[in-house]
């Protein structure tokens, strides 16, 4: 009888599988090309599974929308129309301002301001994770979405693309514990690294005490990390704590993007501020000593 055959597994096979797993983990950590290809290939299947699971939810959502109140729909339409007019009005100003900035930059022999290309994507699900700071969007490799592309919503930075497959892409939010980005602290011109905590809070550690920053100030992307273009709002300072180490403060901030209710997001598909832009390059050079100086202070 099958139950009483001893199917003792071979030690050799176990050892081989263990070594392969450890090698895979290390290579994944290092970020090897063929491991990420394996991840993308298999991820296409699992992302498809996640999408299929989410279909019933989408369906109930659309059914509810069907039965939504007529007045409510009209109110929504009215609100959107107003918002659209407002935005278009502001856009006119923006166009003329951009022309002005370009003219000024030309005088300084700098390149024109580049507006990155964005792609609208819809959230289709989220893979399970203890912290739950990932979600899947309905666009992927086919739409030229690559890992590392920044993701924003109407208010600010949402996160970055972690993995892109044929079936969609996985986005990691800025609040994830595994995410970090470089930000400008208000108008001070100083940069800091902002890391997620797993909750709706971001932390910048080891900011010099003399930095002129107060609760309510906006933190924007610095562009130094070459992942996010410069100038997108990320978070608003909520509190400033004195660090244990003397001379430093810790900045607590909360993301400006509405991470709890993400429906549509924008993916920035073009590489951000390429290093060829001269004025930015000078700025980076000017800011770098500052950053490294801080790092030296930390040590």
């Amino acid at each position: 009888m099958a139950l009483f055959d001893s199917h003792r597994p071979g030690f050799n096979l176990l050892l081989i599988l263990v070594v392969v797993s450890i090698a895979l983990m290390s290579l994944d950590r290092i970020g090897t090309r063929w491991v990420s290809e394996l991840d993308n290939g298999l991820g296409g299947a699992t992302d498809g599974v996640i999408r299929v699971i989410h279909q019933p939810i989408e369906l109930t959502h659309s059914v509810f929308q069907w039965f939504a109140d007529r007045d409510q729909l009209h109110a929504e339409l009215e609100r959107l129309r107003e918002e659209n007019t407002l935005l278009r009005g502001q856009m006119q100003q923006f166009v003329s301002l951009r022309r002005e900035v370009d003219a000024l930059r030309e005088m300084l022999r700098g390149p024109a301001a580049e507006i990155p290309a964005v792609l609208l994507a819809r959230r289709v699900g989220h893979p399970p994770r203890a912290q739950g700071n990932l979600f899947t969007i309905g666009r992927g490799l086919a739409d030229d979405i690559k890992p590392g592309n920044p993701v924003i919503d109407a208010d600010g930075v949402v996160g970055q693309v972690l993995r892109s497959t044929r079936a969609g892409a996985t986005v990691i939010q800025v609040t994830s514990r595994d995410h970090m980005l470089s930000v400008l602290l208000g108008d001070t011109g100083r940069t800091a690294l902002l890391r997620g905590t797993g909750e709706n809070e971001l932390i910048a550690e080891r900011v010099p005490e003399r930095t002129q920053i107060a609760p309510g100030d906006l933190l924007t992307t610095s562009g130094i990390d070459a992942a996010f273009p410069r100038g997108f709002p990320v978070a608003q300072v909520t509190d400033i704590e004195t660090d244990e180490a003397q001379g430093f403060v810790r900045i607590l901030a909360e993301p400006v993007a509405d991470l709890a209710r993400l429906d549509h997001v924008l993916v920035i598909t073009e590489p951000p501020d390429s290093p060829v832009s001269q004025p930015d390059g000078e700025k980076i050079a000017a800011e770098r000593p500052d950053v490294s100086g801080d790092a030296a202070d930390v040590d």
Partner: peptide
């Protein structure tokens, strides 16, 4: 792959459990 975890971690643990 499905949970975007460290590639190979669950593979290792599943193998050990099995």
């Amino acid at each position: 792959v499905a949970t975007n975890g460290l590639l190979g971690l669950n593979a290792l643990l599943f193998t050990l459990t099995a």
